[in-house]
């Protein structure tokens, strides 16, 4: 019996974001990443974080799940952050100097900046894969890449290969599990021993799996032939992605977000100054009272 494992990360709930066209989501992600990298102020970064939070809430995703997606790359992120922190050369006096390590005030700011940028980047990509099935992503990619057909790039073939691969992942996963179980039942041990022993232990899984994959490929080829597949130009396409009001909303949302980021880039410093002034004024007021 198959265990009904969902591969990839797709989180199956019905939401505004889930129903949005995959092309919109792909473009949205690209725009979002651009915004992240263009962003030069803390205000802008906060706005980006707020934007992502809104999308996550709209998508009805548990926040925990999105944060968990960072787990895989957390070491890389922290490592990059530490390097930056230690080697960023700021102006003026270093806060801490020890051998070759100098930590500057700007360094700390810059590191916080970089880290939040990378975290938001990873999380936003996770939101895409959590809300979009792999097959919808493939459709979206195929549609977005269509213009490349004119330079003879095999867009359709690529999309078909991807879709078949996606289709067979669960089947082959099941098969792998069945073979592993069958060999375990014959006393195979995959967990102990040195590297060589372990590699050798994989052979009884790998060979039956390969043979089965080839057999499946051959049968699939026959089945595709029998269903008149020839990859010829008369081929039509049933699935057409359609933009809806959701996509219009998404574009507006993105436009506001980007405008916000750029406005903060230009006027962020002024805004900060204004805040400081306001704060001081407030303190002054209290002092007077």
């Amino acid at each position: 019996m198959r265990k009904d494992v969902a591969f990839g990360q797709y989180y199956p709930v019905d939401s505004f974001v889930h129903r949005t066209d995959p092309r919109t989501k792909l473009l949205f992600l690209i725009a979002y990443i651009v915004a992240l990298f263009c962003c030069k102020t803390g205000w802008g970064m906060a706005l980006c974080a707020l934007g992502l939070l809104t999308v996550i809430l709209l998508a009805k995703l548990p926040l925990k799940l999105v944060v968990r997606s960072v787990r895989g790359v957390v070491f890389l992120l922290v490592f990059t952050g530490i390097l930056n922190l230690f080697f960023y050369r700021g102006e003026g006096e270093a806060l801490i100097s020890w051998k070759f390590i100098h930590i500057y005030k700007e360094g700390i700011f810059y590191t916080i900046y970089l880290m939040s940028r990378l975290f938001l980047l990873v999380m936003s990509s996770a939101v895409l894969t959590l809300t979009t099935t792999p097959i919808a992503l493939t459709d979206g990619l195929e549609s977005l890449l269509t213009p490349l057909k004119y330079i003879r790039f095999p867009v359709h073939e690529l999309a078909l290969i991807m879709s078949i691969a996606l289709r067979f992942i669960p089947t082959l996963m099941d098969e792998t599990e069945r073979i592993i179980n069958a060999q375990k039942a014959r006393g195979a041990d995959f967990e102990s021993g040195n590297v060589f022993k372990r590699i050798k232990a994989i052979i009884p899984i790998l060979i039956p799996l390969l043979i089965s994959a080839f057999r499946r490929a051959e049968e699939l080829g026959d089945a595709m032939d029998a269903r008149c597949y020839s990859g010829s130009s008369i081929r039509t396409k049933y699935k057409k992605l359609r933009f809806t009001y959701r996509d219009v909303c998404a574009f507006f949302f993105m436009a506001i977000l980007m405008t916000g980021v750029f406005l903060f880039n230009s006027y962020g410093a002024a805004l900060s100054a204004l805040c400081v002034q306001g704060w001081n004024a407030l303190l002054g007021l209290f002092g007077a009272v």
Partner: peptide
């Protein structure tokens, strides 16, 4: 054919059924 798993091209039922008609235009 014999093995239902080895004759489907798509992970969505309607896309799979559409495969043949798409091929013949």
């Amino acid at each position: 054919f014999q093995n239902p798993d080895n004759q489907m091209v798509s992970s969505i039922v309607e896309d799979d059924v559409a495969f043949g008609p798409e091929n013949i235009g």
